[in-house]
Design a protein around this nucleic acid. Structure first.
Lengths: 151, 151
DNA sequence: CTCGTACCTGAACCGAGGTTGAGGTCAAGC
DNA sequence: GCTTGACCTCAACCTCGGTTCAGGTACGAG
């Protein structure tokens, strides 16, 4: 007989909300989007595994660097739903972001320099100006973001 | 009698669209939002001053580094509507962005490092983890975990 | 004058990322 | 047993940055 007194305290949506700081409405929304999962009690209430807190932490941290939920979802999709992911799994997940964040930083730096240059020079021409015609897009288009997830 | 042959060729919305690469629907939208301006012909058609091309160039470049239209509008609001802004004016405008872009770059760098650290360490705790609780700008805001949402 | 293209307006719609509210159930304390 | 608060669903609404469409007008070429 398994320990029923204190073994794996599941969280209600209210508890999860308080502990994560994320409104319950958003948690339900994330669940509809398949980003987090719950089991239901006999009375149809949600119960969350405690690892869900980490999924949410990862989710919100990822959002805060500008990742869209769709992409976050792809990465979260590689993690087991209701057992604790290993450190390697998290490391792999966060590695996806490192590349993406570095690319974004590089782009911002180029744009910053171009703002200074191009506006300093007064050109801002649609034909010539690097600020207006960054070839940055080429790199991130096509099969770009898909590459994020390749193993 | 002013020179009517080639003096200040105003642009129709179609010309502006072709030369800027921005769809006419977006140009009308920007105009509704007060980001660009036009005069109307007797037949109610839009005619744009040629400096509008630069406003749009600035606008799109600003968008591409993540500035919301509302903020772009504030900056554009300092520029004269239908005369060419001086180089100083553009420089002032772009200086606003330099600060903002630098702040964003700094934030991304912190987040990148934290993704590596925190996920490497496996913590991702809402109470402790720097990734989840960046005390970046605006250290205190409401009850604890709300800090997640800081810009 | 007619034709074709460019242009006009207003309203509806899109997707992302949610929030709000109505109306109904669940569960725990007195 | 009753009350209270937490929870449920579904639908409607919100902001942002636009696009699409229907129905109508302007204007230059032939």
């Amino acid at each position: 007989m398994p320990d029923s007194s204190s073994a794996a305290p599941e969280l209600t949506i209210g508890e999860l909300s308080r502990r994560s700081g994320v409104p319950a409405s958003a948690l339900r929304f994330y669940e509809r989007q398949g980003l987090i999962h719950s089991r239901r009690t006999s009375g149809n209430q949600r119960r969350y595994h405690r690892t869900t807190l980490r999924r949410i932490a990862f989710l919100r941290a990822s959002q805060s660097v500008g990742m869209p939920l769709s992409v976050i979802g792809e990465v979260l999709g590689f993690l087991p739903e209701d057992t604790a992911p290993t450190r390697e799994m998290w490391a792999t997940a966060s590695e996806c972001w490192t590349k993406e964040i570095n690319a974004r930083i590089a782009k911002m730096e180029r744009m910053r320099d171009r703002f200074t240059e191009c506006i300093g020079c007064g050109c801002l021409s649609f034909d010539v100006c690097a600020l207006v015609n960054p070839d940055d897009e080429l790199a991130s288009r096509g099969p770009g973001p898909r590459r994020l997830l390749q193993p």
